[in-house]
Amino acid sequence: MLLTLLAVVTIAIVRQRSLFGVVILASIYSFLMASVLIVLDAVDVAMTEASVGAGVSTVLLLATLHLVKTTEMKRVRPHLLPLFVSLGTGAVLVWGTLVLPPFGTPDAAIHKHVAPRYIADTIKDTNVPNVVTSVLADYRGYDTLGETTVIFTAGIGVMLLLRKARRRGRRDDAETSR
């Protein structure tokens, strides 16, 4: 049911002409994706998806729409090139997955290198019973810190750009009132 709702929301996003509608639908998509992750027992990833994907991203995008006050132009004629590029890319990706081992196969290459060590030693090394949390916080802590720094830097950049746009808007308003 959740995957069907995800597909419906995706189609609605693609067909939506209002930027406000796209932001709201993207927020709904993030909440649905967080629900899927909870069903898959990845609660920590679900919490991140809900807070960043639905929470922070929605607030930033709505604030941007409010400050920028843009409207989307009507499409004059349908463009078929993006459709063919998307279909071609999708076909190549599906074709590339045909050589992969079946999902969940225990003898796949990904399960033979580091995963057995993480599963066997996670409680002894980190004293954390959740393997995903121990990988993100302990084994790959610097990587997670780097990703968080990138997201924080991007957020600060967006805020500075919006602040500059707001100042420019005030200056334009003052000049037109003279």
Rank of each mutant, 00 (worst) to 15 (best):
L2A: 01
L5D: 15
L5H: 14
L6K: 05
L6H: 05
L6V: 10
L6N: 03
V8Q: 14
V9I: 11
V9F: 00
I11W: 13
A12F: 03
V14N: 06
R17Y: 07
S18Q: 14
S18M: 01
L19Q: 06
V23Y: 03
V23S: 01
I24K: 03
I24T: 04
L25G: 06
A26T: 11
I28T: 11
Y29N: 10
Y29F: 15
S30A: 14
F31R: 13
L32E: 00
L32N: 04
M33G: 03
A34S: 14
V36A: 05
L37Y: 15
V39N: 15
D41E: 15
D41F: 14
D41T: 14
D44Y: 12
A46C: 05
M47Q: 05
T48M: 12
E49D: 01
G55Q: 00
L60P: 05
L60S: 02
L60I: 09
L61I: 03
L62E: 01
T64V: 01
H66T: 00
H66Q: 05
L67N: 01
K69D: 10
T70W: 00
T70K: 02
M73P: 06
R75W: 02
R77K: 08
F84Y: 11
V85P: 02
V85T: 04
S86Y: 11
S86A: 12
L87W: 12
T89L: 14
T89D: 07
G90I: 08
A91S: 13
V92W: 09
T97C: 07
P101K: 04
F103E: 14
G104Q: 06
G104H: 00
P106D: 00
A108Y: 07
A109Q: 15
I110H: 01
H111E: 11
K112Q: 15
V114D: 13
Y118N: 05
Y118P: 05
T122N: 08
K124M: 09
N127T: 08
V128F: 06
V131Y: 04
T133D: 08
S134Y: 00
V135F: 10
A137E: 12
A137H: 11
Y139V: 00
Y142P: 04
T144L: 11
T144N: 02
L145S: 12
L145T: 07
L145F: 12
T148L: 14
T149D: 15
T149R: 14
I151H: 07
F152H: 08
F152T: 12
A154K: 08
G155L: 14
G155Y: 11
V158L: 14
M159K: 06
L160K: 04
L160H: 02
L162V: 04
R166P: 04
R167M: 10
G169R: 13
R170F: 04
R171H: 05
R171M: 09
R171Q: 13
D172P: 01
D172W: 08
T176F: 11
T176E: 15
